[in-house]
């Protein structure tokens, strides 16, 4: 690369720049509807949303696998419509489904990826060794890929996306279907490559994953961005604390409990939600006024079986913004 990236002649430090992106499939379904976003160099960027929100479609556009219906998209300064090959040279792409050649060995898969991205012969041996040890697969280098566990195949897939040391890597739901241990190892791996300066764009429906890894994120629903910011900013917008109250009784009891909470005054009425087994109250003085609420519920004959005061999660953010939970 070498030279300063420019967008419309203006120097920029953004790795990805998306303006007015719209994707309508041939059957008329609009998967992405007017998305704007910028990802800065070296950022760990999260692209969150439920199934069908348009995450994978957007990533496929950024990786030049789909041509958008409308909008301007630049990756590493290259226009995806006119400089597709330059974009592909400068990115790593890890699809949602694990993509490895089952008939080749682990090492042959990584070597093929080296050849795919034009890593010079002199460099290949070093890259293969470094990457296999980075993803803890050096000891199974001669094993056919189809003999590996799901987690190991994912790590091999991730290694293949990085052989050319791309400045930007797209990870489309990389930990879906993995057990917690395999997930942790991949997270650790992604953090390490991000620490080395690689810009990472991660799509996920695991909000905990985004919270732990991402510097900034956007939440998407029905193809549109509904909120963006750092995980802490977004959680801060919900409030400082959340009181979850678990109740016995039916839907009527939960509705009455919510009304009592609203009538108490200290709580913002917009931040009182009925949950599956009780109510949830969000605010900045929840801890202080929580006991008042519990007493009021008891006096109204509503039986409280448990309560918890906790910090908001990204799921609470999603719930607040959309009125429904993501997880």
């Amino acid at each position: 690369m070498g030279q300063q990236k420019r967008i419309d002649g203006v120097p920029t430090d953004s790795a990805i720049d998306v303006r007015g992106l719209r994707v309508t499939y041939a059957d008329g379904t609009t998967a992405v509807d007017d998305i704007d976003m910028t990802v800065r160099e070296g950022e760990f960027f999260g692209f969150l949303g439920p199934n069908g929100a348009g995450k994978t479609t957007t990533i496929k556009v950024l990786a030049t696998l789909l041509t958008p219906s409308d909008g301007e998209v630049r990756v590493n300064g290259f226009n995806i419509r006119t400089d597709g090959r330059d974009v592909r040279k400068s990115i790593g792409y890890m699809a949602q489904e694990t993509s490895v050649d089952p008939e080749l060995t682990v090492e042959e898969n990584v070597r093929f990826a080296c050849e795919m991205y034009g890593v010079s012969r002199d460099e290949r041996d070093r890259r293969v060794l470094t990457l296999l040890s980075l993803v803890d697969l050096a000891d199974v280098a001669d094993k056919p890929a189809d003999k590996l566990s799901g987690g190991m195949q994912k790590r091999l897939d991730a290694a293949m996306a990085l052989v050319h040391e791309p400045p930007v890597v797209f990870l489309d739901e990389p930990t879906t279907g993995l057990d917690p241990e395999a997930r942790d190892r991949l997270w650790d791996y992604f953090r390490r490559i991000n620490d080395q300066g690689t810009t990472i764009v991660l799509t996920t429906q695991y909000l905990e994953e985004a919270d732990k890894l991402c510097d900034r994120l956007v939440l998407v629903q029905d193809g549109s961005v509904i909120i963006k910011g750092s995980p802490n900013d977004l959680k801060g917008r919900v409030g400082e604390e959340i009181l979850d109250v678990e109740l016995t009784g039916d839907e009527g009891a939960r509705r009455r409990a919510a009304e009592i909470a609203r009538d108490l005054g200290p709580f913002n009425s917009n931040a009182i939600e009925e949950t599956d087994n009780g109510i949830s109250v969000t605010g900045n003085s929840v801890r202080e006024h929580g006991t008042t609420l519990l007493v009021a519920l008891d006096e109204a004959g509503i039986s409280v079986v448990g309560f918890d005061v906790r910090e908001p999660t990204l799921d609470d953010v999603f719930l607040t913004v959309t009125g429904e939970g993501l997880t």
């Binding site: 090959r85 040279k89 990115i91 993509s99 991205y117 034009g118």
Partner: peptide, 8 residues
């Protein structure tokens, strides 16, 4: 798809 996302 992996190949299509590469410069090949």
């Amino acid at each position: 798809e992996k190949i299509l996302a590469s410069p090949m």
